[in-house]
Every structure is written in structure tokens, then in C-alpha cells.
């Protein structure tokens, strides 16, 4: 029997090359902002979930479930602290795992955070670390990188559907314009289409501005059983649907390289639980690591 879950507080740090902020600084900042926003003091927490892709390679630190709980001041509470990893979906998956633990009745109030500190490595190290999210033996070992993999997707998309570089670039134009409105954004300037198109080539057809940058940042939310949420806030936001799905790791194993079947299935399950359809959605936030990634994400859902 699954019960409803609500979000009762949120916190986010600035994103960028944050030379003065460590991994610990970032997650503690996001977490404490979320707790403050929710009105809980911390002793109500039943568990802590944290998603981060590659702390081992970026900062030489594993075991971050325990670290984050400790660094947040909860070590004496001895609550379960769980680290979740699924490459770039680590944060999203942490939310799902946290959601399930509250929906199932196991936990009443938890905090879920996502964090990455990428700027303590130099040169190609960040790219190499990200490439561990690909298939090491069949892709990474042979020199594939994330830009390279997404470039292949984009090339096929252009071949199958006549998608143009301009259409890809328009994703970046929109997203940079959104960034200009967000005080937490790494880049706060609108960039015109011509500049996106003329940026140096990273992996054809993706230019530098078709790609997301290396970044530091963290965000956290406090989840609560919906029937208890009114103890903390007048404006709980309910999670009304959640889905998760997997697919082949390697791009060449996919049924269709221009479709992210994992997001299609995950989306289907979320829509089904929520009893909604895509047309009912007012705002969509999708993973736009590359301009082509956003296009596949919205096509799939």
C-alpha cells in the first residue's frame, strides 16, 4: 500500500566554477537551505539520500552517504544515509529512492540531495571521469566521450529527420535565455543564435555552446508523508507520479539510437501513476547535457 508523498522544502546553491566551495560546503549549503525552507530542525529526519555521480574520481572521496550525514550534523542521530548513483541521473534517482521509502511507509520525513564538485580536477580529467558513465569496455575504452556519443545521436537525428544545426542551437538559445533570469545559474547571459552556431566545434555537429559546461553545485529537497505535510507547510507540493526504467548501457545496443527508451518507459509509468498525459504538463524540466539530449527527452515524453 503506497501513500502520497509531498515536498515541504527546497534548497539550491549557485552553480558555477566555485573555487571557494568544496563538495562538503556545497551539499551542506543546499541541505541546510532545504531544511530551513521546510521548517524542520533536522531531528525529524528518518533518513538521508544523496546522489552524486563520481565523487571517487572528482574528489577522491567515496562513502558519501555517511559523509554527508556527518557533515550535516546528523551523525549522532544514526539515521540511514544512502548514496545513489546512476551517472547523470544520480540526483533524480536519489529522489525516486527517497520517494519510495516515504511512500512505502518506511520513512516519514527525509532529505534528498544531489551534488557534484567537478572543478578540482584539471584538463581532460573531467571528461574522462564523465566517460565512465558510458560502457567502459565497448565505448570508453575505444575513445568515446559523452560529446562524441551525443554527436553520433545528433548526426543520426539529422539524417533521419532532417534536423538542422540551427534547430539544435535554438535549444541553447532558449536555455541560456532562461539562465539570464536565474540568479543561481552558472551562465546568466542570453546568447544569440549566431554565436551558438559559430562556437568552436567540440564533436561535430555539436559546437561548444551545444554542450553543458563543467560545473559545481548542489540542491536538496525535504520529502514528507503527504498526510503529515500540513504540520510543516501550507504549500506542500505532491509527487503524483514517478517512474524509473533502464536500457542498454552502450549506445550501439539501443533499439533506436534516436530514442531514449529508458525515459519513454520511465515517463509512461509516471504519467500512468499520475493519471496524466503529456498535454497536461505545464512545465517540463529535462536533462539538457547537450542540445540534442533535450530534443530526445521531449520527443520521448
Amino acid at each position: 500500500m503506497m501513500r502520497d508523498v509531498a515536498i515541504i522544502g527546497v534548497g539550491v546553491t549557485k552553480f558555477g566554477e566555485l573555487w571557494d566551495k568544496s563538495f562538503r560546503n556545497l551539499i551542506a549549503e543546499a541541505g541546510s537551505k532545504a531544511l530551513f525552507d521546510s521548517g524542520i530542525s533536522g531531528k525529524e529526519l528518518d533518513a538521508l539520500y544523496v546522489g552524486s555521480m563520481s565523487t571517487g574520481r572528482f574528489i577522491g572521496q567515496e562513502h558519501i552517504g555517511a559523509l554527508v550525514a556527518d557533515w550535516s550534523g546528523f551523525a549522532h542521530m544514526h539515521i540511514p544515509a544512502i548514496r545513489v548513483e546512476s551517472a547523470c541521473a544520480s540526483g533524480g534517482l536519489a529522489v525516486r529512492q527517497g520517494y519510495l521509502s516515504v511512500a512505502s511507509g518506511m520513512n516519514d520525513v527525509i532529505v534528498v540531495g544531489g551534488v557534484e564538485k567537478m572543478t578540482d580536477v584539471v584538463g581532460d580529467e573531467a571528461n574522462d571521469t564523465l566517460a565512465t558513465g558510458l560502457d567502459q569496455e565497448w565505448e570508453t575504452f575505444f575513445g568515446a566521450t559523452f560529446p562524441g556519443i551525443y554527436a553520433m545521436i545528433a548526426t543520426r537525428h539529422m539524417y533521419d529527420f532532417g534536423t538542422t544545426r540551427e534547430q539544435l542551437a535554438k535549444v541553447a538559445v532558449k536555455n541560456h535565455a532562461n539562465g539570464a533570469l536565474n540568479p543561481f545559474a552558472q551562465f546568466k547571459r542570453a546568447i544569440p543564435l549566431e554565436k551558438i552556431l559559430s562556437s568552436p566545434m567540440t564533436a561535430y555537429p555539436l559546437g561548444m555552446l551545444d554542450c553543458s559546461p563543467v560545473s559545481d553545485g548542489a540542491a536538496a529537497i525535504v520529502l514528507c508523508a503527504a498526510d503529515k505535510a500540513k504540520n510543516y507547510t501550507d504549500k506542500p507540493v505532491k509527487i503524483i507520479g514517478s517512474g524509473q526504467a533502464s536500457d542498454t548501457l552502450s549506445l550501439h545496443g539501443r533499439r533506436d539510437i534516436c530514442t531514449f527508451d529508458s525515459t519513454v518507459y520511465a515517463g509512461k509509468n509516471a504519467y500512468k501513476q499520475a493519471k496524466l498525459q503529456p498535454k497536461d504538463i505545464d512545465v517540463a524540466e529535462v536533462h539538457d547535457c547537450f542540445t540534442i539530449a533535450e530534443i530526445l527527452a521531449i520527443e520521448g515524453n
Binding site: E17, W19, D20, T119, V122, G123
Partner: peptide, 10 residues
């Protein structure tokens, strides 16, 4: 050796 972008702002 150098720290890449670290050689800038900080």
C-alpha cells in the same frame, strides 16, 4: 603543470 581554469579567477 598547471591547474587549467584554476589559473584564472583564484
Amino acid at each position: 603543470s598547471h591547474g587549467g581554469r584554476f589559473t584564472g579567477a583564484p
